[in-house]
């Protein structure tokens, strides 16, 4: 084998190793999270752990159900606010905004995506918590406050992925509709948006994933009480928060229970990812192989 060919061979194998690195890492991550988290399922029971209403490590109570509900409530409420705003904004960017304004919006969204989550949390703590307290009563540390912060944090994800989906709708569709005498708004409503729906759903699920996984920004404003909220002004605790709040001093079963919380979180995220992939795949089909 000439030195050329040997070099080519080695390079290809080396690159292959870098490519499968992420798979190896995921396997190690799963292995370690399960290794540390599995004992809680054995000792406390899977169902007791997932559906238990009480979380009191000092009394050996390890039910995470209130936090599952907490995570879902915060996420749901933030999607309720973020989805309309970001889809409107994505359509605005893709179809309506004049070039000059788009030149402001694009970096705005990139910067919003780049602000550290702790800074968002800090902003929420200093500005939103007092605002909610004064406007709506209570302590201000609430599901609502956390949802508002998450809304802002997931805006860039939903906007940019939706915008891509809207932009990848073939130009011909739009021209055909306009040529038939449809107005711009009719064209968007009846042609462009429906064609982009799978991509928009992917965007929403990705935003949802980010909301479920967000930790510190939520801790800083949500109040972190382990209870099922009665109103959006009640404090709640998310799964992520539970880990971050207690890991610093947890030992023994408590330590395992926090890894167990991570397993629940991990499974929720994986479900979302698989759903997102399903729609992403559909999107390719819908646009007839024209995707990218």
């Amino acid at each position: 084998m000439s030195s050329n060919k040997l070099e080519e061979y080695l390079v290809e194998k080396g690159l292959f190793l870098t490519a499968i690195f992420s798979i190896i890492i995921i396997l190690i991550i799963i292995a370690f999270i399960f290794r540390e988290g599995f004992p809680i399922f054995q000792e406390y029971g899977v169902l007791n752990f997932i559906f238990g209403m009480n979380w009191a490590p000092s009394d050996e109570q390890y039910g995470v159900f209130t936090m599952i509900v907490g995570s879902l409530c915060i996420t749901g409420l933030s999607l309720l606010m973020a989805v309309p705003l970001s889809i409107l904004c994505a359509i605005f960017m893709a179809e309506i905004a004049p070039k000059t304004f788009r030149k402001i919006l694009k970096p705005t969204i990139e910067t919003l995506a780049g602000i550290p989550s702790v800074v968002y949390g800090f902003f929420g703590l200093i500005v939103l918590v007092p605002l909610v307290r004064v406007q709506f009563g209570g302590t201000g540390f609430s599901m609502l406050t956390a949802s508002i912060i998450l809304t802002i944090m997931i805006l860039p994800t939903i906007i940019s992925v939706s915008e891509d989906a809207l932009r990848s709708v073939p130009h011909e569709y739009k021209e055909a509709s306009l040529a038939l005498g449809a107005t711009q708004w009719q064209t968007i409503k009846n042609v462009i948006f429906p064609a982009a729906i799978p991509g928009v759903i992917t965007a929403i699920i990705l935003g949802m994933g980010r909301a479920v996984g967000e930790t510190l920004a939520v801790i800083m404003v949500a109040g972190n009480v382990t209870q099922i909220p009665n109103s959006i002004l009640d404090p709640v605790r998310a799964l992520t928060s539970n880990i971050a709040l207690e890991m610093g001093y947890a030992t023994g079963v408590h330590y395992n229970a926090l890894f167990g919380t991570a397993i629940v979180l991990f499974i929720m995220i994986m479900v979302l990812l698989v759903i997102a992939n399903y729609f992403h795949y559909k999107k390719k089909v819908v646009i007839g192989g024209g995707y990218l």
Partner: peptide, 27 residues
């Protein structure tokens, strides 16, 4: 294999940061 690699990267991208934190601690 390529599909698996892509899925791997997506998974890595969507694991919550706090889970990375636990992994970092234990590993």
């Amino acid at each position: 294999v390529v599909k698996l690699i892509r899925f791997g990267a997506e998974t890595l991208a969507s694991i919550p940061s706090i889970v990375f934190g636990l992994f970092g601690l234990s590993f």
